[in-house]
Design a binder for these strands. Structure first.
Lengths: 122, 122
DNA sequence: ACGCAGCGATTACATGCGTAGTCAGTGAGG
DNA sequence: CCTCACTGACTACGCATGTAATCGCTGCGT
């Protein structure tokens, strides 16, 4: 149902998840500077997100205010699942194991996740 | 350095990671059936992977045998990091937390990861 | 009343991707 | 020898994406 969100579009979504509703201009102002996008680029991306039905716009005077239609949590879980399915046969453990094997996991991560899992078990 | 591997290309890589070196025809035979690709499609993908320098081919008679140049482990860790950076600020815990929150984690996952972390701590 | 700044819509264009057809060379079989 | 099947190379083509310019409308300032 929910169409694919591209990389560039995702950057716009992050802005709207952070704060909404926003006008196109406000979105453009909040996009990370290293993107270095023209205002037109942001408007195009908003238009595409509208067409994909993942944001909505409500009229406000002679402009629109944009607002996400999908929750960030749903999106990130969906993307995470897709990656885990594609690369690790749908299982979370191998992901953690691979990261650990390459020292891509900190002691802090370990402590946090242990605490989290402990909580989950109750 | 290592160029981006597309979704379709990744399916080919999985075949080669599973077994290599293989001829183009052998790769085509081993690609998941639900892909339903023509042999030509597989050859195109092999060509693109060659151009991207992620596989190599060695001559064998009048055909080639293809072989991965990047390790699967490197690839999956790279992709995982990209996702974690993009969606969770580079931290692993929020990924696990989000999945847990949506019941996308099984009791088995929990047990396995706990065991894994325990081992890591030593 | 009029021009201009700002807005969304439309159009543009290069590149990548998914999928595949066609071409040219060559070795095996008759 | 000659043909044909098979192989890699090249070409094709429509759609998505990243990035942006241009157009047409309209309300505000003078």
């Amino acid at each position: 149902m929910t169409e694919r969100i591209s990389e560039a579009e995702h950057a716009v979504m992050e802005v709207l998840w952070e704060e909404s509703p926003l006008t196109a201009q406000e979105v453009a102002e909040r996009v990370p500077v290293d993107r270095d996008w023209s205002a037109n680029t942001v408007k195009t991306l908003l238009g595409r997100l509208l067409a994909k039905n993942v944001i909505a716009h409500e009229e406000e005077g002679r402009r629109y205010r944009y607002r996400p239609l999908v929750a960030r949590g749903d999106y990130v879980v969906g993307e995470s699942r897709k990656l885990i399915d594609r690369l690790f046969g749908g299982r979370l453990t191998p992901l953690v194991a691979h990261l650990a094997e390459r020292d891509a996991i900190t002691d802090q991560d370990i402590a946090e996740i242990e605490a989290l899992l402990k909580e989950l078990k109750q």
